[in-house]
Design a protein around this nucleic acid. Structure first.
Lengths: 340, 340
DNA sequence: TTGTAAGCGTTATCAG
DNA sequence: CTGATAACGCTTACAA
């Protein structure tokens, strides 16, 4: 199982040329006569030669690899992003080194260093939770950016060699709240589970829409869920608790489809009719929207578009071009059965 | 941004020792006096030295990387597997190169070769869809196994240097069907969307349970869904169509949670009560089970356990130990609200 | 305990 | 168009 691997020397011998020539045909150089090229190609074919990626990496100082970091690659939303990115990058000839970092900063710093050590050509941070509120905590991003370009999917940070691609979460949430308000709904519960960069943008959008309509956002209008991100029943419990405390609401505007799904579960428990008595809007427009009845209205943040743009930008940067530091795409509310 | 990288030579000079010594402290060799070790460590610290991974890879012929292949890393079930594996492998000091191959054999062969070319230390195929019914189609796995160990998560293939870790899908499905039958349910619809290795095992389990009970599995008892794996409404359409054709059923036994969810959607459309008039059982025990009301009964195939075992086995193989070629774990039906 | 020097398999720079 | 030959940065016998 470990025969002596065939190298460029073997090929050069077998084809009766120098290793330089072999290397040339390997890299598609023009300066090779068709005759020799064929000789070399034939030798490669016959001996089943595969160039050694490490040696090549050493020479070229790259192995065409991009590091992808995500808190949890099984989170449906992040998983989609990773999937799109992997496909796109592969199309550009790059492989992806995946790093699931969890949510602890310490872990993230370690992962970042590891990727740098492995000499990836660029790093993509998938998910807004990588950008912290406290600037000091974002130092690890700047440090990495000193070595390789860092791309932020769904988060923004203004720093040298970091590029941000985001959906306009603020406006999306503002518009969604506004739509509810324009239907005469005033008791809106804002349900969220993250204070990440985009989490804060969303929240601001909601608050501003309420303020613009002269509505209060006091006492329990915003509910933060801090438990497990997959535990839908626990989320429903929280809503039930709020309701039982006497805080009734006519709509739930959630920062995530999972939270919105839990509102539906809550409604069933309480016998509240959706959407007649309760409107529900989620975020991310994930496959979960189709899993429930009625189907969930949700804000689509155009992940695939963001990923395409991110990849194109990264390729531009790696190609030595000047690229836009921040790009923002508009989101869109997809209306389904949980809104009137 | 591209200062001449600091190498082992710089350190050796700065510490006043040879590069061999530097290399020794780098690799934690015993044969270094504490005094010199400190000198070297200090030099490294001061100059912010990071060993070049490519050079090291060239010398050691490994970069401690495992290739992970999956059809679609955003499929919730596969995503979970990838997540567990990545965590476990990182714990062992390995990084993961992710390859989303889709379902076409051609693509898979290419991805496989690519991973081999990049000189990964092992390859993990996540998902039973990598093992085809026609043995000739599995040649790409054997070819890869000639170079590096290949691990199969949830699929089995008997070949040199390939190791299979599976859940006993046959028995799980057999038992689930049996449970329904023992409750007096005879009109069971088996709803599936894959003819992969584990897909075939599940189907066989269902068929055998029916046969053992003297029940027929003719005319439409098994329904194959061939559309998009996320399109729940389309799945519900199929069930509705079957029902409207006059084939009524008292239970849906699904090969996947998504399919089971669609049965719930179908039931709501038709006003059929679950579980009183219709029992539903899914497979994978994913987070989807908690998203619906009533919550979905589902078969847990112990992904995390499988992943742990897979990782341990792979580490054993890489360590040169003899390891079991095939391991089977039992699954378990988690009963929730969609079964009586 | 430490140093010298020979790889590891490419790429790239020069001459020819 | 082609061939020597020097990097690339590290590991590892083999000497000392």
């Amino acid at each position: 199982m470990k025969e002596h691997a065939v190298t460029i020397y073997d090929i050069s011998k077998q084809a009766g040329v120098s290793i330089a020539t072999v290397s040339r045909v390997l890299n598609g150089s023009d300066n090779v006569s068709e005759a020799t090229r064929q000789k070399v190609l034939k030798a490669m074919e016959e001996s089943g030669y595969t160039p050694n990626a490490f040696a090549r990496g050493l020479g070229l100082n790259t192995m065409k690899t991009i590091g992808i970091m995500a808190a949890d690659s099984s989170d449906p939303y992040l998983a989609k992003g990773i999937y799109f990115l992997e496909q796109l990058l592969r199309g550009e000839g790059y492989d992806c080194l995946l790093c699931c970092t969890g949510y602890s900063l310490k872990n993230r710093i370690a992962s970042m260093e590891l990727l740098i050590t492995k000499k990836v050509d660029g790093i993509i941070l998938v998910g807004s939770n990588f950008v912290y509120e406290d600037d000091a905590d974002n130092k690890y991003i700047l440090d990495a950016a000193a070595q390789v370009p860092v791309m932020l999917l769904n988060a923004a940070l203004d720093a040298p060699n970091v590029y941000s691609i985001t959906s306009d979460d603020y406006t999306s949430m503002y518009n969604a709240a506004n739509m509810l308000i324009s239907e005469g709904i005033t008791d809106i519960l804002y349900f969220f589970n993250s204070r990440s960069y985009s989490g804060r943008r969303k929240e601001a959008g909601f608050r501003d829409a309420m303020k613009a309509a002269g509505l209060s956002t006091g006492d329990g209008t915003l509910q933060f869920y801090r438990g497990n991100r997959e535990d839908v029943p626990a989320m429903a419990d929280l809503l039930e608790h709020v309701w039982d405390q006497g805080h009734h609401f006519e709509a739930v505007l959630a920062s995530d489809d999972t939270l919105a799904i839990s509102a539906l579960k809550f409604a069933v428990r309480k016998g509240i009719k959706v959407p007649e008595e309760l409107s529900v809007i989620g975020y991310n427009n994930s496959m979960l929207t189709a899993c429930v009845t009625p189907e969930l209205s949700s804000i689509d943040n155009r992940q695939e578009t963001l990923c395409q743009h991110l990849t194109a930008t990264l390729m531009g940067v790696l190609g030595g071009n000047e690229m836009p530091k921040q790009t923002v795409f508009a989101g869109e509310l997809i209306r389904r059965g949980t809104t009137r």
